[in-house]
Amino acid sequence: MQEVEISRLVSPYRDDMVIKGYQFGHGEKAACIVGPVRGNEIQQMYICSQLVRALKELENNGCVSAGKQIMVIPYVNSHSINVERQFFGVKGVDINRSFPGNDYGEPVSRLSGKLLDEIKDYTYGIQFTSFYQRGEFVPHVRMMETGYQNTSLANLFGLPYVVVKHPLPIDTTTLNYNWQDDNTCAFTLFTNCNESIDETSARQAIAAVLRFLKRMGIIRYESHSGYISHVIYEQDMTEIYINHAGLFRSKVKCGDDVRYGMELAEIIDPGDGSVREVITAPTDGIVFFAHNSALATQYDIAYRLIHRLHE
């Protein structure tokens, strides 16, 4: 294992923000794994740190294939993590909306430009990040429909779902989109939570990455075969909205199988405790996304359902 400095942001009042990469193996730039660009992606940082640990052991046992190099960048935005802010710097910029960046502009553009420069030559790119809407997910691989996306490769992570998203203009500034634009086969992995560590989901994510690296011939590793992934287009999911604001009391969780008409949640009046709304399932399906705040604003998304897949 070799530690490399990817970039260094010099700060007048704080320690420099150093982005570090951990490299394994030598030769062709085979795979790069990138951790949190937002300050609340703690689970993602945990997963990347444990990947470094696992890869170090695999390398010591001679299990990184000859002529293949892997790099893990466990955190990008440590300045924000340390002060528990989601976004970067005094302007509060989302680094994941600042790609491709450049070497002459704003501090955040220079940072994302330098980062992309260092990682764009890898064949496979894997990013751990969070969704802009707060809530809980079933773990999945997400890809943008750029024309270069390859869902059959995404299946090789062995996670239950691969979600393909049609990019909006705002998505063209994400790392995933720009990585693909630079001909890296890029995947984004979503785990079920951000701010806290969930051991089960972390183990699943680590296993998924190692399984992928094994199937691509980058490492030798004993793994279970994982799931046969279902490919889902985001626009095909059923969104269930909250029509009245109040306290949100959920009766289901991510991954649950629900039936048409089943009670999913109640909205409680925060004053008198009465039930303002009962949210029911409009279709049979699996809960893919769940609102997980105790508070509900009108027209929040309560759940996203995947229609039942016939087995």
């Binding site: 942001l9 010099v10 700060s11 007048p12 009042y13 005094v90 502009g105 704003e106 501090p107 553009s109």
Partner: peptide, 10 residues
């Protein structure tokens, strides 16, 4: 007008 700057700030 905001005095604290990093490299790259306008």
């Amino acid at each position: 007008i905001y005095p604290v700057v990093y490299e790259g700030d306008l």
